[in-house]
Design a protein around this nucleic acid. Structure first.
Lengths: 236, 236
DNA sequence: TTCCGGATGTGAGGTGGTTCACAGAGGTGG
DNA sequence: CCACCTCTGTGAACCACCTCACATCCGGAA
């Protein structure tokens, strides 16, 4: 019985299962399940026992930590093809962050047993897993740098430019970001306050560096934004 | 031909090679080399091609990033048994940080070929590697939290308490830190300025919370230090 | 349409921590 | 035993950003 072709394509495009054959992907797809999630839904919380791994089919999930006062910092954001929640499957430790849906969509869920079976049936997953963790570690290291070295402006500039990678290029050489990010979400992702982000965006809008197109941010003057981003603070 | 027994013990105690049999350890030990390193020595720099993995036999190595203005943040500190530099061996990407010796000691070095051979001869290394990366990721996540949520005092308190894990307990219930850390190093490890660390230490010394014993910091009033550390900022 | 909750814009005020600028204290090697 | 370099201590000035406190603004639900 073959699973949804669409699902197989998505899994096959994710870092994690990318090395697998279609047959193996089908097996995995058949052993997991897909469910839709509403915006705001909490998939798991810090400290929970972790017994499943998630893959984003559509929508967006934020992995973050909270202070008791309600401050929040996003450790990572997962979009289509992103896999998360595997740490707990590897070491059996509790969840190290909260996972919150910030854009409604569908999630593929694979529980511990199915994951183990997949590992057994195709050891190359192990290598892929290694690659996933390595990449994640490099990204997190960069996050540490950003937060401790850069001021808020450059951090935001970098985030916008990173988001632009999945954006749409217009014929005018501008880039429309791929989704409607609230200022609150942007703030969480650069460890800043919502107000600061608001003020910076207002300034850049006045300067003609960015704009708004039906709710989505548009990067107008990429060069100038790049100037903000590499304010030569980090060597190389 | 058996390698140095001492070396085998150290490798066997490291996260990375911990699952290996003595025979396998001997093989690895025989395929790498040991060299001593002076304080201040730079083992590799950000952007270098990475073709070897290091294990600390003695001494201490800081993995850090620099700004062009000379600011520095330590992403990790490696002490006896610590393994680092494996990221580049896994994904072939350049070094993601600078590695600097902050306390002279001996290093075990394993190049790419020898590492690959070890992997081939004992696949369980792969699993151990997964564990190492997972742990590292969790630690780095905590670092992100600390830097973005906590003020300088709590960050320093946490660092001191963490260092105390390897320290010596006195009969008076105090803990002597295991090495002479300069204020500069402490500052790098919590993303603060040297001056701020100096002032905080001076304050705590006046308050009788910490002290100095032949150059080494002594944690006198652990309870009060703990109060500083969990200022209830992070839930749980 | 009307209402309402979430999202956004903006100013005033406070402040932790940085930077700068020295002065002293050690310890290490010549 | 002196010289030098590194580490330490401390105050003054500055500043980016946070917090607080509102005034809009907008989109969807009723």
């Amino acid at each position: 019985m073959t699973a949804d072709r669409n699902l197989i394509d998505i899994l096959g495009a994710s870092d994690m299962f990318q090395p697998l054959s279609d047959d193996a992907l089908g097996l995995i797809a058949a052993n997991g399940r897909v469910r839709s999630a509403r915006r705001g839904e909490v998939l798991f919380s810090f400290g929970d026992p972790g017994d499943a791994l998630f893959a984003v089919c559509s929508g967006r999930v934020l992995l973050s930590r909270f202070t008791s006062e309600g401050k929040e910092i996003a450790l990572a954001a997962m979009e289509e093809g992103g896999v998360f929640g595997e740490l707990s499957l590897i070491d059996g430790e509790p969840r190290s962050a909260d996972a919150t849906v910030v854009e409604a969509g569908d999630l593929f869920i694979l529980d511990r047993v199915a994951f183990q079976n997949a590992l057994d049936s195709d050891p190359s997953i192990l290598t892929a897993l290694l690659g996933v963790l390595t990449r994640r570690l490099r990204i997190t290291n960069r996050l540490v740098e950003s937060v401790s070295f850069l001021e808020m402006g450059p951090r935001l500039a970098r985030l916008l430019l990173a988001l632009a990678a999945r954006g749409v290029h217009t014929d005018a050489g501008e880039i429309i970001l791929p989704a409607r990010y609230t200022q609150g979400e942007l703030a969480k992702r650069i460890a800043a306050s919502r107000e600061s982000v608001s003020k910076q965006i207002a300034q850049w809008t006045r300067d003609g560096i960015i704009g708004l197109k039906d709710g989505k941010l548009v990067l107008i003057d990429i060069d100038r934004l790049n100037l903000w981003a590499d304010d030569m603070d980090l060597e190389l």
